[in-house]
């Protein structure tokens, strides 16, 4: 255990990076998922086909491959563009943080598309009709009837998406992001104690997933309080 001394703060900052990636990719994942769901729900055939393509590509491709492609591909493109302006530039990359964040947001977003679409369709038509019959306009129906119910239906699966995001963060260490797994590799180079270091990484991630799971459970409890009887 004392082999860890000196590395505690490195692991701490690595965890901070994990949290940052999580929050950034969460926002993007929701955006991508909502756009995809909207595209599939609209009557537009082209939008539908593009959304389907998006889903097929990112659900059928290994995450590591997407990350590598996005990072190296964007680096090559960026370098080429930069060399047009100043030829002495050898290598310009998109920071691994953003390449990785966008990559995992795209991947989990493709699953989120189905989740949001299913949740949208799962809202009882009766509720919508009742609201309309009461005279509420489109906007009000959407925000007061549709969204709360969608949110409740999507929550369990959405929780799983959040868990996927946090775990996929470890993959970004492959392209040099200095999150916890990357820190561990450095620690091993100096201490020669791979087992402890990687277990430490595991514990940190387990901590993150526990927090997410507990949060989702609380939200689920809160969100279904209108469905539990008084007994």
């Amino acid at each position: 255990m004392d082999v860890l001394t000196g590395w505690w703060d490195d692991f701490f900052w690595g965890s901070v990076v994990v949290a940052q990636v999580f929050l950034a990719s969460l926002v993007l994942m929701v955006i991508f998922g909502l756009i995809g769901a909207a595209a599939k729900l609209s009557g537009n055939r082209i939008a539908h086909k593009i959304a389907n393509g998006y889903t097929i590509v990112f659900r059928g491709t290994p995450e590591i491959l997407v990350i590598l492609l996005l990072y190296f591909g964007s680096a090559i493109a960026l370098t080429a563009i930069a060399q047009v302006f100043s030829p002495e530039i050898k290598f310009l990359d998109v920071p691994p943080f953003w390449a990785g964040t966008i990559a995992i947001a795209l991947i989990v977003g493709s699953y989120a598309t189905e989740t949001f679409r299913g949740a949208f369709l799962g809202v009882k038509p009766g509720s919508i009709e009742a609201a309309q019959a009461l005279g509420m306009n489109g906007f009000q129906v959407f925000f007061y009837v549709r969204v709360p119910e969608m949110w409740r239906l999507a929550l369990p699966a959405f929780g799983n998406h959040m868990l996927s995001l946090i775990k996929d963060t470890a993959l970004i260490s492959i392209i040099g992001l200095n999150e916890t797994l990357f820190v561990a590799k450095q620690a091993i180079a100096t201490t020669g104690a791979p087992f402890i270091m990687y277990i430490m990484v595991g514990v940190i991630y387990l901590g993150f997933s526990t927090v997410i799971t507990l949060t989702v459970m609380t939200l689920e409890y809160y969100g279904t309080r209108h469905m539990r009887s008084a007994a």
Binding site: A170, L171, L181, A193, P194, Y198, Y205, S209
Partner: peptide
């Protein structure tokens, strides 16, 4: 199940491949 679903697969692979030989 909690441990194996709560940690990244990459970490699990590294623990087995790099970590176990240390023991």
């Amino acid at each position: 199940i909690y441990v194996f679903r709560g940690t990244p697969i990459l970490v699990q692979i590294f623990i087995v491949y790099y970590g176990f030989p240390q023991l």
